[in-house]
Amino acid sequence: MKKWRISNLYLALVFIVLYLPIFYLIFYSFNVGDTMDHFSGFSWRHYATLLSDSRMISIVLNTLIIALLSSLIATIVGTMGALGIYSAKKATVKNGLLSLNNVLMVSPDVIIGASFLIFFTFLGFSLGFGSVLLSHIAFSIPIVVLMVLPKINELPKTMVDAAYDLGASSWQTLTKVILPAITPGIFAGYFMAFTYSLDDFAVTFFVTGNGFSTLSVEIYSRARQGVDLEVNALSTLMFIVSLLLVVGYYLLGRYNQNRRLQRVKAAEAKINQ
């Protein structure tokens, strides 16, 4: 117990502060009553309401579709953009492009949202699914570029030379060497864009319309009339899903590592025979 220090206490405190509100929310999702003032008994009542609330379910689906589609398209565009920045010959061009990308990354969502609203109304573009999707793609692209570019920069220059040396064309070099080597970065970019899209409020709030809504906007508008415990139930379900994803990711990583170790041992045993 020598390791017990003040730093551990601090860490525990930080985690409690971070997780307590979530568990508070989860706890009251099982309340019989309609408020979070006091717990009057256990029930699945709010979960039942949630599942029969077809408006809420369709909004969940909308949100997922927007997130999946926008991050997919942003990943494709962003990866091509990162490749473009990488292959820029002049340092000034490279840095210029990267700066333009980073400005979008750090500028506040409110400004991006407002400017998209002005842009869409100027073009006469009707607000709804299309406008939300386009703006989500737009703010996800810089994220993908930022996740993919370091992976490309990590590639040894000689690896590309080696591909040409072995007879590959530019296209074959891209598809058989560069893309497979930066796949982890592409996946990271995709998931990053996905989570950004899932919980975006500010941009969506500006550019949505026509009765189209996403989760964050819907929860916000409901919360203005006092939080309904149905929202608690929904949050609980989403928390559990993300927990399962994290655990699944961890287990998958461990499984792959074990399998690789076993393969090495098997190969070594075979060679040593």
Binding site: P156, D161, A162, P180, A181, T183
Partner: peptide, 11 residues
Amino acid sequence: TVFQDYALFPH
């Protein structure tokens, strides 16, 4: 070519 850093394809 055999490269100084080998330049093998890690994937």
